[in-house]
Nucleic acid binder design. Structure first.
Lengths: 250, 250
DNA sequence: TTTCCAAATTGATCCTGATCAAGTTTCAAA
DNA sequence: TTTGAAACTTGATCAGGATCAATTTGGAAA
């Protein structure tokens, strides 16, 4: 995958057009003004398209940029010394990938496209220069990073206190509200990730995930066929989850 | 606890002396220069002393400041809708509390002193102003927040993949290396937290923590009497833990 | 010192979810 | 269309750790 990086930099980087991007209200501070927005556009590069399963970066890639998902979705994961993988997050359009890597000179995780995915690239060096000039943008960076800490803490609680059913209900509701913020249906959507990924993320076995899905289905809470999911009874799901209403929702 | 806050602000805040603070190499960027350090000292207030169990802030407190532990130790926790508590971190001298709260206008967690604890206060408004002027300090803030995300991700992995023994070994080793960085013994120290807190933090029952401690003791890995702990066989503990070598170690 | 309550330990039993083992479905490539 | 492999589902069994219960220890206040 190391070859893809030089390629992306050689190929003339398109200047991003945050002005017209429908996601700008998600990945940008709402308070940002016209001139500030132009400064940001100057440093943002419209990255290339990644196809399903393709690496965006991994723990051996030198850290240069954060990435905003424009369309599609991304998963990040860390790997233990013994090769065990732990998925640390799923990222939907408008969400920023790489905030965990802003210390050290390599990425702290591996990022992989879950489907055909388009991303915008923020070179951190330029971003840091810019945030010293734009206090509003700096504040927004603190805001985003702080939220990522909070969401991870909520996930800790979920993993340490909740049952399999509660974890899965919470994930479904999280996805639901995040889709909804993107003006997509919050009750009928397509899971960007495999059952295996769900299991890994939530600290469960695949078989358990599968069983809970069918149990929810039998109880009339959801309708699921493969990755297509319909939430039939959101209040009931909320009753099951009791926590993490909008994990990782920026 | 709300009464203590006004009190702390009325009582003339002492200007901190980061110059002479033995922890400055932990909580400050190493590259910071003389003039920058003075700017920082201008905004840092030497906070008051908290006694064991005392609240520093909670989720109803308006967010104003981050805090650096000067001596003693602090635990932070979040509470679910149903009143379940989840400890999200233990903080030793030199570590910064409150980075998860830099979004929103209230703290995102509750912070409580685990013992007699002295802290320095960083009013965030002034801190943000300062970081726009000092790019090195801004970079350091990104660095610290990024690390907090990483540590939380590592904790996620620990909770989702590791056994009770592995979790506890990892915690002991984490504390060990953090004490060591503070020039304290890494093999013989006093746990700042109760068994209950360890259990809560690691997603276990108290009884399990107790049992693992005695098991480790019988295997000759540690010697434990109450909160006094001696690590007798660090390599063996590392073999048990296999992960999270230095969680939350800034 | 005694008293008292919280913290910690130890034992016995139970249950959720892991693991092992077959299938079944899906979907992409030939 | 066939084929093959990965993804998913379902069933049976097992085990790690939770829970319940009973002491024991420790430390602060009287």
């Amino acid at each position: 995958m190391a070859q893809t990086l030089p390629f992306r930099q050689v190929s003339s980087p398109l200047k991003a057009s945050c002005h017209t991007c429908s996601l700008s209200n998600l990945c940008l501070p709402l308070a940002i003004n016209e001139t500030d927005l132009e400064s940001l556009e100057d440093i943002v590069q419209q990255g290339r398209i990644y196809s399903r399963g393709e690496h965006i970066f991994d723990q051996s890639t030198p850290f240069r940029s954060c990435f905003a998902v424009r369309s599609g979705s991304v998963k990040t994961s860390i790997v233990s010394e013994h090769g065990e993988e732990q998925i640390t997050g799923f990222f939907l359009p408008g969400e920023l990938v790489g905030l965990d890597s802003m210390s050290g000179d390599h990425y702290a995780c591996t990022a992989k496209a879950l489907e055909r995915t388009s991303i915008c690239e923020f070179p951190v060096q330029k971003l840091e220069e810019l945030t010293t000039r734009l206090p509003g943008l700096q504040h927004h960076m603190y805001h985003l990073m702080s939220q990522e800490i909070q969401h991870s803490h909520q996930l800790n609680m979920l993993l340490s206190k909740n049952t399999a059913e509660e974890r899965i209900a919470a994930l479904l509701l999280s996805l639901s509200s995040r889709f909804q913020r993107r003006r997509l249906s919050g009750t009928r959507f397509s899971l960007p990730m495999a059952r295996n990924d769900i299991a890994n993320f939530l600290g469960l076995a695949v078989e358990t995930v599968s069983r809970v899905f069918t149990r929810f289905q039998n109880q009339g809470l959801i309708k699921a066929r493969g990755r297509e999911v319909e939430l039939l009874d959101v209040p009931a799901l909320q009753g099951v989850s009791r926590e993490l209403s909008q994990q990782a929702c920026p």
